[in-house]
Design a binder for these strands. Structure first.
Lengths: 226, 226
DNA sequence: AATAAAATATGATATTTGTCATACAACTTC
DNA sequence: GAAGTTGTATGACAAATATCATATTTTATT
């Protein structure tokens, strides 16, 4: 069993407020999982009863819309926690989490977290602040969805992917999404997404090589939306 | 100065966790305001440094989009608190709050709230849960914006207004929004909103009489979206 | 009450986006 | 390596929505 106090990713989440004793207690009751690409960590409506700490990999948080499409609400990567809202609300999870690449995650049961909540004020404050960040981002995202064109949203999504998850040595986006998933982030039909990517390609602002997308002119890409 | 322990609306917010002493302390440092219809309570980017408790009236939370449109993110009514996220994040407010009707609000300074946060666990837990509800609603709202047509969103918005804020004796929606504001909730152009309202009217699912809108066939309205 | 200003309504049209069909490419599986 | 399956691409077209113009109605102001 690996030790939480030696786990580097905890430094990036609310868990950084915990002291050595508290971390040892967590290490004792946590369970570690390997999730393969494409597998779910949890599914909308499930009772999770705890939080996941992402040690490695990226996953998508999705919600199935009435029309049968999976909308990607958010991407989560190493260092972040998953399932906090549902744990605090004491409700089933509202979103599904599915691995976009092979992942390492730890599960910490709710009872443990709630205990720390009461004894360590910094920790609960950190969690609260993290949820506040999520809320602000969700509100902003909502405005983007409501007010911007599909074209704009796709351009901004590509830039977001580059800025947040970085690029490979050949400058292509590190996070690999299928066209369907990219459409699910943007909130559009897969064909529309493909068509717009082709357009961006022809405009010379991105280069497409199979699943690899490279932004070659970020400024022009963001301007190329009208 | 009115006394918070006799204020009925506190029963509907996180403040219900406070005891008599704590309420007396709040009553001492709070300030009461009357906000006239159309006036802002606060504006995007402002430092608020406290929370507002809505004693009466309804306001809209809006965000100015890059294209110059005001997107209405949420409506807030009596019994609810305003500015919690910004206070906890220690940031300027992300949204503007503007009165849709004459309002009575109380302002409680941040120092006071943060004091209660540390001494009353139920209170801080209530606030945290309220923010979790907001986050869940924002995520769901986001999916609606991304996946549903303008027509569907307008229909659902009308039903939401009826279910949440009720109707007048003549069955018309109690909350009165201009066509521009309604378009701002739906995330569409004002003309499109007006056109769709006319269509719904012709379909016989709503009746329009100036600013008064009456839903006459809720089930058909929700079905009338294709 | 007269005038101005703002909000609502509607037509005409352009643009954006979705849908359906089909082709091709890439990847699995046997 | 052949056949099936899935993902990507593109054309043709339909539908939804935005934009611009203009009329009409309502509301505010003097």
């Amino acid at each position: 069993m690996s030790k939480c106090d030696q786990c580097i990713v905890r430094e990036f989440s609310s868990l950084k407020a915990l002291n050595k004793d508290e971390l040892l207690k967590i290490a004792d009751c946590k369970s570690s999982y390997t999730i393969k690409k494409g597998e779910p960590i949890f599914t909308e409506g499930e009772n999770v009863n705890g939080i996941f700490c992402i040690k490695d990999g990226v996953c998508k948080l999705t919600k199935l819309s009435a029309n049968g499409n999976d909308q990607i609400v958010k991407l989560i990567t190493k260092g972040e926690l998953l399932g906090q809202r549902s744990m605090i609300s004491d409700e089933p999870v509202n979103l599904s989490a599915v691995a976009l690449e092979d992942m390492e995650v730890c599960f910490i049961p709710k009872t443990e977290i709630m205990g720390l909540f009461n004894q360590n004020n910094n920790f609960s404050m950190n969690v609260m602040k993290a949820i506040c960040v999520d809320l602000k981002e969700a509100d902003d995202h909502l405005v983007t969805m409501a007010q911007k064109s599909v074209r704009q949203r796709l351009a901004e999504t590509l830039v977001y992917l580059q800025d947040t998850f970085g690029v490979n040595p050949d400058n292509s986006l590190k996070v690999k999404l299928s066209r369907e998933e990219l459409a699910g982030m943007v909130g559009t039909a897969t064909e529309s997404c493909i068509r717009l990517l082709s357009e961006f390609n022809k405009l010379g602002v991105i280069v497409i090589a199979g699943k690899n997308i490279t932004i070659t002119d970020k400024a022009k890409l963001l301007r190329a939306v009208n």
